[in-house]
């Protein structure tokens, strides 16, 4: 139950949605794009989110696309994580998304909502960071296609009133060998201690991490260390741990020290799965 009410709009086109946002923003209504809406509903209930106008974009055609176009897989931002899992067109995304929240909730949580979430795990972005994907963004100046690396730095840097419409991922990344694991403090649902997603392409291992820092990331420095030839796997992992972004989370889910311990083991698992190394 939300302690405030809002106006509800359900535009049918991207242009209409973008224009509505401008109009409602000018009226001071703090409009919010809404797809699955789980974050507005749960954070709004405890006064951590507020809006006077919701713009529900989930039925806009471009946002619901799931198709191969030429050499790219297009995935719409308002598809639910369950829809993406059931179709299983991008196995690394399927695996990573299937670790978010729980199964019923994933029938409501959408890809774009997870990537743009205020709750910072945003695990669904990890496969796209690994695959050098592109994202389609709609705004007042029409649409644009940009590299995810240019707009995702810890969070998706959308301008006010812009909408994440689709992701586009090259098929060679879709087919690449991968690893994805979410290590929790306990049990099998809940927030992660660490989520690691990895894939191997062109003989190099790539890794992206959520839950270690207060933002998900992929780090060139970490990957350079992990791929250093002529070193033992332990030395490579040590090298990766020495160049991590900061700060390391230190909270009720796990201390910074424990998180680093867990990450060390997960990186060993990544090398075992994708590089065939044996340490344990």
């Amino acid at each position: 139950m939300l302690p405030f009410d809002f106006e509800y709009y359900k535009p049918e086109t991207l242009q209409e949605a973008v224009e509505l946002y401008q109009y409602l923003d000018q009226q001071g209504k703090q409009p919010m794009f809404f797809s699955g809406g789980t974050e507005l509903i749960t954070l709004g209930r405890i006064d951590l989110a507020y809006t006077e106008a919701v713009i529900d974009i989930k039925d806009i055609a471009e946002c619901k696309v799931m198709q191969v176009s030429g050499d790219h897989l297009l995935i719409g931002s308002t598809l639910t994580l369950t829809q993406i899992e059931e179709a299983n067109l991008f196995p690394l995304l399927t695996k990573t998304a299937s670790q978010v929240a729980d199964h019923s909730a994933r029938g409501k949580i959408t890809l774009g909502g997870n990537i743009c979430a205020r709750i910072f795990y945003r695990e669904a972005v990890l496969p796209f960071l690994l695959a050098d994907s592109q994202v389609v963004i709609a705004g007042t100046d029409g649409g644009k296609v940009v590299a995810i690396h240019d707009v995702f730095q810890g969070e998706l840097k959308l301008k006010r009133g812009e909408i994440l419409v689709q992701t586009a991922t090259e098929s060679r990344f879709i087919r690449a060998p991968f690893f994805s694991f979410k290590r929790r403090q306990q049990w099998e649902t809940g927030y992660p201690l660490i989520t690691v997603a990895a894939l191997k392409i062109d003989q190099e291992v790539r890794v992206a991490v959520s839950g270690l820092c207060p933002f998900p990331f992929r780090s060139k420095e970490v990957e350079t260390a992990l791929n250093k030839s002529g070193q033992s796997a332990v030395a490579r992992v040590d090298g990766a741990l020495a160049v991590l972004p900061k700060p390391i989370l230190n909270d009720v889910e796990g201390s910074a020290e424990y998180r680093l311990f867990v990450l060390r083991n997960l990186l060993v698992d990544v090398l075992a799965a994708l590089d065939g190394v044996r340490i344990r």
Partner: peptide, 24 residues
């Protein structure tokens, strides 16, 4: 829980489970 965690409010929407506290 009213927060999408417990599942006590689950209904079916178009044949799929839905936590009705998470849906407007």
């Amino acid at each position: 829980c009213l927060n999408g965690d417990c599942g006590a409010c689950t209904v079916n929407v178009d044949g799929w489970p839905m936590k009705s506290c998470l849906m407007l």
